[in-house]
Write a protein that binds this DNA or RNA. Structure first.
Lengths: 156, 156
DNA sequence: ATAAAACATACCATGTCAATAGGTTTTACG
DNA sequence: CGTAAAACCTATTGACATGGTATGTTTTAT
């Protein structure tokens, strides 16, 4: 199951895409809007920042901002950073101890296929897909360069 | 994430389809073959029995057996009985407290669609789909139970 | 110099999971 | 009958994750 960590992350990223005009957004502002505990949110944004999905700026006037246009964030990417893994069963997680019955297991193929379905689902959608229709905010550079390519990549 | 409860349930149902010839199979036999704690398995089989997916018979010569042919068990059904719900997020579970931001939530449609994908996946497969190819065991033709044969088959 | 903000670390309360323990009923069979 | 075999039932445990809190430290604009 997807925990609040990943769900909050998605909501917050969407919030930033909607409310950020290219400038930094303060954490407490986001927490207030989304009804999330400030301190708890800190840990989530820290992880997203560490992995480069967000850029944090310290000190007065600081905050966080997106580093890419919404179309360039795969939902799966955001969830993996915050949830760790999207594997539906423990034995498919990275670093999981090899199952002794692996070869005989009747259900392993089932989980593997489901894992594929889930990844396809989450990697086939971007942050832009969960924004209100027509919310095409211009970002810093505003270059169209990667946009169509990205869209084509994920929307066959 | 699917816990061991649901995963064990599937493996055990498959085991019973493979090794039961219409007769009752003792719990400890299954636990041994599948490498599952006997006592833990008790609780799982009890639930499946309570919901009518299995029939339990007490006393000497008792055990469990399937109540239908494998094709008639949807994977989703087995998992729901043992896992409780297949909802990918807490807010979609039955009896979950209504989310205050439900109407504004950017991510709710995402979870709802995923929930649909998961249900489709699990309800589109049956127990027969995880059995070895060509394993069309007769049911109801209750031949005498070859328990010794089973034991010999699986003890190296 | 100061205040605002991100960043970092440790802690806690709760709940679930997997497993175990110790019993009670039911049933076949000699 | 009596007995052993089996399912059934209830409670407890230890480990772990989750969601959240507390208490700082660094950086930065003014």
């Amino acid at each position: 199951m997807i925990s609040t960590r990943g769900r909050y992350a998605l909501r917050v990223m969407a919030d930033m895409a909607e409310h950020g005009q290219g400038g930094y957004i303060r954490l407490d502002e986001i927490a207030l809007r989304q009804g999330i505990s400030e301190k708890y949110l800190e840990g989530i944004l820290a992880a997203l920042s560490r992995e480069g999905l967000l850029e944090g700026h310290r000190g007065k006037g600081g905050g966080y901002k997106l580093t890419r246009p919404p179309e360039a964030y795969k939902i799966g990417e955001i969830l993996r950073v915050t949830e760790g893994s999207l594997a539906p069963v423990a034995c498919l997680k990275e670093g999981a101890p090899a199952c002794a019955l692996r070869e005989k297991c009747r259900t392993l193929p089932l989980w593997e296929e489901l894992y594929g379905v889930i990844c396809e689902y989450f990697d086939g959608k971007t942050l832009a897909d969960i924004l209100p229709k027509g919310d095409e905010r211009r970002f810093g550079s505003g270059q169209a360069l990667p946009l169509q390519a990205i869209k084509r990549e994920h929307r066959p």
